[in-house]
Amino acid sequence: MKTLRLLVTSIFIIGFVSIQQVSAQNDIKSLKVKIKNKENQISANEEILMSGVKALKRVNANLADFKKSKKATKKEVNRKEKIVASMQLRLTKLNTQIENQKKELAIFERKLARKQKRNPVKKAEVAETTSTSFDATISNNQKGISLRKQKLEAARKKLEEERKAREIAYLKQQEALRLEEEKLKQLDNEIKAEEQAISKEKNTLISDLEDDISINEEILTSGKEGLAKMKTKLEEAKKDPTTSKESISRKEAIILKIEKRLANIQNEINAKKQELSTLKG
């Protein structure tokens, strides 16, 4: 009976371990598929990115030439610059997508490494076989060729990575320049808006000053006419023996006040004209 229980327990344990191993192997296979798919996505996007950067360089060069031509109008230059900016933005987004995909790939690779470490694949024992001297020579030659191929592939891969790095560096540089240009344009627009506000305020002030001067000149003209009449009446009163000294003194005092008031108005007009001249530059 004990033997039977031990047998059942052993079978259960072996079955459980087998299930765990199968599950682990399935996880490993799934991760390998994910890694392969992610690598394919990255490769495809990198090819698109590299082609896009080449096109961006060409478009930038064409734009630079166009700006130097006599046909270049501000409107057309702005239109072409917007096209370049849109192109740069799309490529920058694609590059960001690739970087995120590479991060995801690194996560998958770390998971796979952990899984493989926990569940190492058992290698079947291979029986040693004797080989002839001729077979050994062929094997060594094949190993040499294989090693050279690996070195060649590694060199090609290094060159390709360097090329990609240069293209991405160019893209980032262009994007940084684009952002800087946008900041400068925004600053330029802000300055123009402030200048327009100042100009509007200045024009309003000029208009107000001109109105004040016009009104004061009207008052001054009317006042001078009234003053002249009062002076005439004063002279007539002085010649009239019936006019009292008190009346003459009162008239003279009024005339002095009017003259003082008119002088103040004239000074105000002169000051505002000076201010107006300064504003108009």
Rank of each mutant, 00 (worst) to 15 (best):
E99N: 10
S86K: 14
E99G: 04
E218I: 15
T243L: 00
E195R: 13
K123T: 15
E236R: 09
K32H: 08
P241G: 02
S207W: 03
N267L: 08
E81D: 10
L262H: 02
E47K: 15
S23F: 11
L91F: 03
E175S: 10
R148V: 04
L220F: 09
K245L: 03
M230F: 06
R156G: 06
R90P: 08
V33G: 00
K38R: 13
P241I: 01
L205G: 00
I198M: 01
N40T: 15
A61Y: 10
R79A: 08
Y170P: 08
R118M: 07
S10M: 10
I198P: 00
Q41V: 05
I19N: 04
K257L: 13
D65I: 06
L179N: 04
S244L: 00
K239M: 05
S222E: 14
T137L: 15
I219D: 00
E161C: 04
E46S: 12
R156A: 08
A64K: 08
V53S: 00
T137Q: 10
Q173F: 07
K111N: 14
A197D: 10
Q101G: 03
R118T: 06
A271I: 10
N216I: 14
E268Y: 11
A55M: 07
I254D: 01
I168Q: 07
N37W: 01
F134Y: 13
L234S: 02
K103A: 13
K93F: 04
E201N: 13
K157Q: 11
T96I: 04
K75P: 05
P120M: 02
R250I: 15
P120L: 00
K157R: 11
A237C: 02
A237H: 05
K245N: 12
I219C: 00
L49C: 05
S23M: 12
K36A: 14
K54G: 12
I206C: 07
E99L: 07
I258F: 00
K32E: 15
A64F: 08
I265Q: 00
A197E: 11
A113Y: 08
D188Q: 14
L234K: 06
K224Q: 11
T92D: 04
N62A: 08
N95S: 15
L262F: 05
L4G: 01
K2M: 06
S23L: 13
K164H: 09
I98W: 00
R79T: 12
S277V: 05
S139H: 11
A176E: 12
V33Q: 11
A228P: 02
R118W: 07
K38D: 07
L171H: 06
A106C: 02
V17N: 07
K183Y: 06
Q266W: 02
L256Q: 05
F12C: 08
K280H: 01
G223I: 15
K233Q: 12
K238Q: 08
I11H: 03
K158T: 14
E217C: 03
E161A: 13
Q186I: 14
L105Y: 03
A61E: 13
K111E: 13
